[in-house]
Design a protein around this nucleic acid. Structure first.
Ligand code: MN
Ligand code: MN
Ligand code: MN
Ligand code: MN
Lengths: 226, 226
DNA sequence: ATTTTTATTTTGTCTAAATAAAAAAATGGC
DNA sequence: GCCATTTTTTTATTTAGACAAAATAAAAAT
């Protein structure tokens, strides 16, 4: 008969590392490298090595020296809970407090660390159980489930087809503000009129307006074909 | 020509110390003692000494060894801002997320440390610029001003007079839950019918109901005479 | 005036998180 | 397979915050 710690205490820093590993791991099948984590978190590889050993001791990651790192089931659960909290707070800031979608990230980065299960459940309810955050990213359910919608990049739409703008790949302030200036928002209907051979830029019809956008932009906008 | 740090960075721990000093200082004219702070924060006097030196270096407290501590103007401003944030979050939890008044303190204790001026301004607006928190405590304005209402303890009401219940002196979970069970809430109209010589207990009429309450209770309920 | 008690500070350690510099391991080219 | 380069880890330090034990100051008692 053994004694199990039901809940491991995870510090704020540890949480941020877990989240970084989660996001880096999403886009690749291989284990996440120390340097990649250091770069993303603007910290040093040596600090990352230290932390990985600690997270490994706590059973949150699978870590083999020099071989990169992956999240354990427990680590994934922790990451998904953080992503859930982060995105719910973002929805709160935009829907209830009139923040713009380029202002929410930094504050959500703090709020995601507040520890109260009841708080987040009630917040979810207060917001009407939203399925996506202000950037179109899906919000994991309480038990870590995702609505995976079939979205594609605007640049991959063929000429003549129409899509609803459902998300951004790059959610940097500069890109989001740029979209605001161009009056491109989630929910807009976009029809691809023509593609320029020269630079891959697109002529689109967005809710009745004609617009000419660079390939760069089309590469960072998600749409759902209709 | 000198360079001034416009904003001193105050850590979470420092903020909690500042708040403790503020609350302890409210009820007394003398400087706050090291031991009192240690007791309130469930920490050791030695830790407090260390911190007081640091806070003094940052210009947040006036500290003379062995002579206790008071807040500087900057310290007071910091404390009031924290109290403002703490109480606004408490209102949010009760008004918007259906928390009960005995559940809000621990969560607000975390939320008060979130750093974003815009967040708190917008929250204030979202809540309709409340003047008191769920325990009847006043919420400082953005520039640190208070609405000081003329309230007195229920035990100090004379026989036959009536008051509106406007606050609690003790806002511990046990007391708040007890009041819930007795169906005593802020806003209730209380008339003092009789005082027992023996134990100082009171017979009151509260919104039409007759109730017999101990002196202890009457000592922890604030009323506003009508 | 002296001693005792209480309150407070100092000192030395500890842990968490970070960095810089040095060492070790992996990798890619020949 | 060996070398040079890159990546990663180790080691030694630093800083913030905490605590226990020892030292000291102030207050109270004799
Ligand atoms: Mn964060
Ligand atoms: Mn987002
Ligand atoms: Mn706090
Ligand atoms: Mn309160």
């Amino acid at each position: 008969m053994y004694f199990y710690e039901n809940f491991i205490f995870v510090t704020l820093s540890e949480e941020d590392y877990i989240k970084a590993i989660y996001h880096l791991g999403k886009t690749q099948t291989a284990a996440v490298s120390t340097n990649a984590i250091a770069k993303r978190m603007a910290t040093k590889p040596s600090s990352v090595s230290d932390m990985l050993r600690k997270l490994s001791d706590k059973g949150l990651v699978n870590y083999k020296r020099y071989k990169g790192v992956t999240l354990t089931d427990e680590g994934i659960a922790t990451a998904l809970n953080l992503v859930r909290k982060h995105r719910l707070w973002e929805v709160f800031l935009v829907d209830k407090l009139e923040f713009t979608w380029d202002e929410v990230h930094e504050v959500a980065e703090q709020l995601e660390h507040i520890k109260s299960e009841k708080l987040i459940d009630k917040l979810d309810q207060h917001l009407g159980f939203p399925e996506v955050d202000p950037h179109g990213d899906p919000i994991p359910s309480k038990n870590g489930e995702f609505k995976t919608s079939i979205k594609k990049l605007l640049k991959d739409l063929s000429i003549g087809t129409t899509g609803i703008c459902v998300g951004v790949k790059d959610s940097s302030k500069t890109f989001l503000k740029f979209l605001d200036r161009k009056k491109i928002a989630l929910g807009d209907e976009i029809k691809v009129l023509e593609r320029e051979e020269f630079d891959g830029s697109l002529h689109i019809d967005i809710d009745g307006r004609d617009l000419h956008i660079s390939k760069q932009i089309a590469t960072n906008l998600y749409v759902k074909e209709v």
